[in-house]
Design a protein around this nucleic acid. Sequence first.
DNA 1: CATGAATGAGAGTTCATTCAT
DNA 2: AATGAATGAACTCTCATTCAT
Lengths: 206, 206, 206, 206
Amino acid sequence: MGIVRDSKRTQKNIINTAMKLFARDGFDGVSVDLIAKEADINKAMIYYYFKNKAKLYEKVVNTLLDEIYEQIVEDIKKADKPNDELKIFIETFCNYAWNNPYLSSLMLAELGSGAKNLPDDMFVGLKQIFLLLSDILKRGKERGCFFDIEPIIIHFMITGTINLFISTKSLRKRVAKEFGADVCDDCGEKELSSYIYKKIVKMLKA
Amino acid sequence: MGIVRDSKRTQKNIINTAMKLFARDGFDGVSVDLIAKEADINKAMIYYYFKNKAKLYEKVVNTLLDEIYEQIVEDIKKADKPNDELKIFIETFCNYAWNNPYLSSLMLAELGSGAKNLPDDMFVGLKQIFLLLSDILKRGKERGCFFDIEPIIIHFMITGTINLFISTKSLRKRVAKEFGADVCDDCGEKELSSYIYKKIVKMLKA
Amino acid sequence: MGIVRDSKRTQKNIINTAMKLFARDGFDGVSVDLIAKEADINKAMIYYYFKNKAKLYEKVVNTLLDEIYEQIVEDIKKADKPNDELKIFIETFCNYAWNNPYLSSLMLAELGSGAKNLPDDMFVGLKQIFLLLSDILKRGKERGCFFDIEPIIIHFMITGTINLFISTKSLRKRVAKEFGADVCDDCGEKELSSYIYKKIVKMLKA
Amino acid sequence: MGIVRDSKRTQKNIINTAMKLFARDGFDGVSVDLIAKEADINKAMIYYYFKNKAKLYEKVVNTLLDEIYEQIVEDIKKADKPNDELKIFIETFCNYAWNNPYLSSLMLAELGSGAKNLPDDMFVGLKQIFLLLSDILKRGKERGCFFDIEPIIIHFMITGTINLFISTKSLRKRVAKEFGADVCDDCGEKELSSYIYKKIVKMLKA
DNA sequence: CATGAATGAGAGTTCATTCAT
DNA sequence: AATGAATGAACTCTCATTCAT
């Protein structure tokens, strides 16, 4: 049993290390050697547990997508009105991405690349989150809260904006410092999500 | 090409080929060998003209950013009200990205990676476009057309959404086919830009 | 080798092969590909064990310098008078270089190049040998055996001459054959060392 | 006529630039591109004037060897005794090498490499200098001034020592600074040649 | 489960040399 | 006499992956 625990811990260790590195340098920018070294395990173990580099990457992204999906589903239970559901969707997504900035980089990388070779698991993970929002919007429409909705565009407006905002943190800092432009460089998570919610709601009104 | 010793043409050829490949497979996903092969030129010419792979990539992105910037600046001259300026900004950006889908992939790749090592030229290119929109919004605010604006967030809402919409074209097609979900898979360029403009304007009203 | 997973043996094999090739064609004249091919191992192993070509070169030269240093230190124990120490220094250096002609080429290459970027290890190796002779000369001076000594010049007179004599073996053969000039082309190791010893001793007398 | 002058000047320019670079970084360490750039001429000109890199190298070395040979021949006319001839040989060789440190590096590189593929011209150049000394020694022997001579070894003792001394200038400085060892780091040209002459003469006495 | 040795393909880059003008 | 464009081979080094123990 102790061994089983070790196995799990080793796998968690690999996934977490890989997550950090993949988010920072992209799939091709990270070598399996580096992951092994940073995780302080033998390289062959990665192949033992995950078969190959691509499968490990998939596992990493799925772990993130699953987690955030579960989180939103959990949080959304508290809501009863479409407006509240939308609010929680935005807040939870924003909160999770803010605290796991890897997610934003990885989602943008996947979607930006056209998701050419998107493995099925990841495809499902992304779709689930979209359907969650889509359902909220549809219910809102049926109840007369939201008007003239194009779910996929609204989805990109919300998640894309959050992802871009988070992954450009250092870039925005640089712009602010060098040019004094107003790029919200000291905005916090709450400000971001409440601004977006406020604007999206307004946008969806009759 | 071969014996067509035409410097300008060779360079254009390299840039165009590289643009297509970088957009499809990312910086690390494309080998210099492949670029040379696809452009039907000798690999060493790439180093002769662009010094190295990174510099070529930079040149490619800058070319796109410069072009779209010039285009917007040109088109926007026709407008006199902030609302029209905003409309043209969205339409031109959308039109250009639609016809040069490389731009969307490359912008998402750059921004999504946190633009860690963003070369100065590209930094300037990205900033210019942002400042263009930022100025429109500010003028609109002064004239009482727009309210409660956070330029950088609005910027991401517009450009990020367009970029994601364009670069996920095939992904959305797949979702539509396999699940029948409504993902605007047959939306055209005009519909996209007009929907976004309509929504953004509403969002910025008093 | 192939399936003989024997780390020590593989490394020795690489070092010996590289030694032969570097001495014959110089650092730049030998490709890592060739070393791998001649050693009958996979090229990547060279990087696995030695990090890069320069480090391998360093290792090769250090191996030789260390060996000859140890040999001289060992042999010199038998001597008690400065004259005998000098004799053994010359004989052992000559004997080792004669049987490892790589050393001569490599020493001349390093020193001749001005040792611009001499790595620390090699610097130490060369210095050690010089200090060995330097000490012999100083002791000889104190005991009244040697007079008017400039250690570094005497050092070059001995080791430089031996190195040049050995590394020009084939050149001297050619001169002898084509011009009948007297270039000691059939001198043996003993004759060389005894002639040099005789002359150096005379040179250092009162 | 003006064109002829230019041509000569261009060639001289190339040779001088190449000399400096070859001496500093060796044959393989210098690219034709660099030579062209440093000489501020078009690369193709090097091929136009010298056929290829190897031929240019040859020309460079021959130029040096010819110059020093002519110089020694000229200076030696003043001497009438073998002792004086030897003195002048050493002084002139030392003086020339001291003022053209390229020579030392290049000679050591050629001889140290075993002169495997030594072109005929260079072969002749090296041999001439050796024969010059050889004749001096033979005359000295016939007149009863020098005893027990092995010309080639004496030759290496003189020229090898001078070359090594000059090409290790910076290395010796480093040893002196870091270890305080006595390596003649502030010896001048005169001291070197007079010390060597003094010692060689003593060595050759009856 | 775990390790270090081994592999083969391919990446980016440089270079000597030639060609067309 | 001179130039810039072009070529092809070679070189150093890295990487994903597998094997033997």
